[in-house]
């Protein structure tokens, strides 16, 4: 079931490609509170201007293609994204390899204009196309004992020059609690600005969890595993003091090496000013109930 969550602008408002490259003003954001049945955008509406195609496709962290921000744009061209299949296994009714074309034929693609906040204190606004992760998981049938979802990125050294270096323990892995994974804001993106997802942005299929730091939104996913134990995650394995399992965007909990209170919006040039970071990246209304009673300083 698609359209559980609504931008105030949705698929109906998609502008022809020539126009949105001019950075039109887009109204998007908090309305709907994650419940599509709520009629009309009665609550706060915010101006979200998506970053340009150039911004979004030339400033990426995808260490499998190098640690420089432009390395993915320069090196990801060689990545073969078709054919592609995603293995869904673990605590599911129908484990197996799901072909990308089959998945797409069963999903409804919608546009989601989300803020993206990197743990490095920069941010963008991205007009994703994709479907809810909940719908993909429903294909495989989540068994009742499952509590967590683990994700794995493709590991293909011959097409990924960055994995020659032990920057991280390859392959890249991430994880969510099942309720986070099933939240209507959590999507699997397949496109950008109505076009197929560029390789440097995680083609052909990537996770997008807009209230968490960007590294949680794992790219080029090849495996999804349901389990009853919290799965390991790459950055947490590498530096547990700096990157927690949750990694929710939180301006009051600093990274040990830098402040998370503010962020720089990409695209403002050399004299761009900083803006305050929002709790849960501005999706507090939608997701804070997931963490009721939790100490967010300890569970960073």
């Amino acid at each position: 079931m698609a359209y559980r969550w609504k931008n105030t602008l949705t698929a109906a408002d998609i502008t022809p490609p020539g126009v949105y490259l001019n950075r039109r003003q887009i109204m998007a954001g908090l309305a709907g509170a994650g419940v599509a049945s709520l009629a009309g955008p009665a609550v706060a509406v915010e101006d979200l201007t998506p970053n340009s195609w150039d911004d979004i496709t030339n400033y990426n962290n995808f260490y499998e293609f190098g640690t420089g921000k432009e390395d993915p744009a320069n090196n990801a061209g060689a990545l073969t994204t078709a054919p592609w299949s995603v293995t869904i296994d673990g605590m599911v009714e129908r484990p197996g390899a799901y072909d990308m074309q089959d998945i797409l034929s069963k999903m409804t693609i919608e546009e989601r204009i989300y803020r993206l906040r990197c743990v490095e204190a920069w941010s963008m606004v991205v007009p994703w196309n994709g479907f809810e992760l909940a719908d993909l998981l429903a294909l495989a049938g989540v068994r009742p004992e499952a509590r967590f979802v683990a994700f794995e990125t493709l590991y293909r050294p011959e097409e990924m020059p960055g994995v020659r270096y032990p920057v991280l323990d390859w392959p890249y892995v991430e994880g969510l609690r099942l309720d986070e994974a099933l939240h209507p804001l959590t999507i699997m993106a397949t496109g950008l600005y109505g076009k197929p997802l560029p390789n440097q942005n995680g083609a052909p299929l990537r996770l997008v969890v807009p209230w968490k730091y960007g590294f949680k939104s794992i790219k080029s996913v090849v495996r999804i595993t349901l389990s009853d134990t919290q799965p390991p995650t790459s950055w947490n394995k590498s530096l547990p003091r700096e990157y927690g399992f949750y990694s929710n965007v939180n301006p009051t909990v600093d990274h040990p090496r830098w402040s998370q209170a503010s962020e720089r919006k990409i695209g403002g040039g050399l004299f761009a000013s900083k803006v305050p970071t929002l709790m849960f990246n501005g999706y507090e209304r939608e997701v804070s109930a997931l963490y009721d009673g939790m100490d967010l300083v300890r569970n960073f």
């Binding site: 970053n51 150039d54 911004d55 030339n58 400033y59 921000k69 432009e70 920069w122 720089r264 990409i266 695209g267 040039g269 050399l270 761009a272």
Partner: peptide
Amino acid sequence: LGVTGGLGVEPIKAL
């Protein structure tokens, strides 16, 4: 280069 866009989309860190 930073002023004229030659340092990519995030010229502050680049510079």
